[in-house]
């Protein structure tokens, strides 16, 4: 719960930096909180950073698509602050630190993890929005079909 509040604060303040409309700020903050909690849960279970980041980004994408339909705004308003907690700050920093200290193999390890995490975030969000577009298209087809036959 404490984690949720902290991630909420981070995303909320980040949303202010991105200049989002006032009524959407709270929802953007909640998005950050949710994605961090999902990440934490899966990370404790599986101990795989990239995989849990991917799932968290997917959940974040689903949440922001749903909210986008409710609030009638584009989805990125929620998803960009929402992925703030997932951005691989720690691993990137560890990479730099390892390079500075001369432990190059460790640095390569961490560097690949950083790139993988960044990719996982983007693909998670894209997967969510693609699924939503697909579902809405299928729905349209389903609605149109009976009309065409009758």
């Amino acid at each position: 719960m404490m984690d949720f509040v902290l991630a909420f604060i981070g995303s909320f303040a980040g949303a202010i930096l991105f200049n989002i409309e006032r009524k959407n700020l709270i929802w953007a903050g909640i998005c950050g909180g949710i994605s961090w909690v999902v990440f934490k849960l899966f990370y404790i279970q599986t101990d795989r950073v990239v995989f849990s980041t991917f799932l968290a980004a997917f959940v974040c994408g689903v949440y922001s698509e749903t909210m986008a339909r409710k609030c009638k705004t584009p989805a990125f308003v929620f998803s960009i602050p929402g992925i703030y907690p997932l951005v691989p700050g720690i691993t990137a920093y560890t990479t730099v630190r390892a390079i500075v200290e001369g432990r190059l193999i460790f640095a390569v390890n961490k560097g690949i993890e950083t790139i993988g995490t960044a990719g996982a975030i983007a693909f998670g969000i894209m997967l969510a929005s693609t699924v939503f577009q697909f579902v809405s298209k299928v729905n349209e087809g389903y609605k149109n079909k009976p009309k065409a036959t009758s």
């Binding site: 909420f8 604060i9 981070g10 303040a13 930096l17």
Partner: peptide
């Protein structure tokens, strides 16, 4: 707010 991002 940039301070709060760091704090959180």
């Amino acid at each position: 707010s940039s301070g709060f991002v760091a704090l959180g």
